[in-house]
Design a protein around this nucleic acid. Structure first.
Lengths: 240, 240
DNA sequence: GGGCTTCGGTACGCTTGCGTACGGAAGGAA
DNA sequence: TTCCTTCCGTACGCAAGCGTACCGAAGCCC
């Protein structure tokens, strides 16, 4: 997953945004990135907090959530190795607009805010990549807004599982129905029913606290269009 | 509304983002802005379109919508004189990620993409203001995502009407129940029922095709927290 | 003024999903 | 092993909102 040095200086970090940089820009990332492990449910930063560094997921999956005054929490963004969550940093702010936390445990490459800011200022390529990613995050949040009002619980479950499966390396990952329900803003038992249906059709199987994707295509097809839309938004942010 | 020149060179455009610029930066806005009138329902740009210019509303209200493959359309952002809709432009892209159109007719200050880009490059103050506004737009889209899944039709109606009332100069504006229903992603008759309730309590009154805010406080109090949250996000983007 | 379109009031049965609750089972802790 | 917590299956009545439909009225066009 993490390939610290290759002969031609083609350092790859494991984060696809950083790896989309031209090889020359990537070499000195070694000095800038500290690889840390995030545990599941570990909060990366609370809303309003000072952003000390920017997190570039390698095989971890991070979630951005909006917290309502009654304590309800709804997921408004998810990021894996195709991005980073600190959109505020890329918009020259060092205060977090939203809380985010680790959804699926794994490695994250951390860049200090100072290094990040300095790279933004000195490398147009870097800055442009970050901005494209912000664009994808905005698109994705907008898509979620429409999705949440137009698509069924089952479609949204499938969407979430599809998205997460893409971001996790393997086919199995840790997840309780309860947490997924909170992310989607629905009942726990609603998720249990949807998961049951997806399992019956052979798309997934699950045991206590973990999901396995059995048939990726079936799962994707059960998801609403928002899965493909967001996937496309993030992948084109890397290539464009 | 539009004050073309004042003695000390304190030109004000009527758009609060532009007017938040230091007086020195504002003077030459005269050359950069063309004030045009948008008709209700006029599309400012379709998704995927080339952005020829950036629209800074003066007394018009613009909406950003996500269009689903079945043709359903849901509002994912609204902007009045406190912002601008072309977040893509501020992120150095000249392609529109979303469709946007004029919700409430009125004046808009248009800046060509070339001028906008050049200002972004030459004035850090300008660029920073634009980025702050993008941040508010992102925050707002995220809030909508949570709102759409957690709040009732009536709360969301009140939220929308409160937001729009703030953006329109006066207390009355043109609006059909049908259009509001489309924006919120709900039934037309659902909006009619909510509007009836808001009218009964004395918050608004309406006639065929138009709404009048009778009691702003009552209306705000009927709205969900998302009204205040978004209002705060956009206003702090101007001050911070 | 007459005709036609658009808009809003209202109603119907129906579906989805909510809130809640209870019990069983998995699996970690002691 | 036993206990205890966490997680999931399932069920119930209920509320919100959907899809649809019909009608009358407002208001525009000719």
């Amino acid at each position: 997953m993490l390939n610290l040095r290759r002969p031609a200086g083609a350092y790859t970090s494991g984060n696809r945004v950083l790896d989309a940089l031209p090889a020359g820009d990537r070499i000195d990332l070694i000095a800038d990135l500290e690889v840390v492990n995030f545990a599941a449910h570990q909060v990366t930063h609370e809303v309003g907090a000072f952003l000390g560094h920017v997190n570039f997921p390698i095989d971890a999956v991070l979630s951005v959530v909006a917290t309502l005054t009654n304590g309800d929490t709804v997921e408004v963004g998810t990021v894996g190795s195709e991005g980073f969550v600190e959109t505020d940093a890329a918009l020259h702010s060092s205060l977090a607009n939203r809380t985010s936390f680790c959804q699926v445990r794994g490695m994250v490459g951390q860049m200090s805010m100072a290094r990040f800011t300095s790279r933004m200022a000195t490398s147009q390529t870097f800055a442009q990549l970050m901005r494209r990613n912000v664009r994808a995050s905005l698109f994705s949040a907008q898509q979620f807004a429409a999705c949440n009002v137009k698509h069924s619980v089952q479609e949204r479950c499938a969407r979430w599982l599809s998205m997460t499966a893409d971001r996790v390396g393997g086919t199995e990952f840790i997840l309780t129905h309860d947490l997924l329900a909170i992310m989607l803003g629905v009942r726990r038992s609603g998720v249990s029913e949807a998961a049951e249906a997806l399992q019956r059709m052979g798309a997934i199987s699950y045991r206590r606290g973990a999901v396995t994707v059995k048939n990726q295509k079936l799962l994707n097809d059960s998801a609403c269009e928002c899965y493909e839309a967001c996937k496309h938004a993030f992948s084109s942010a890397l290539r464009e």
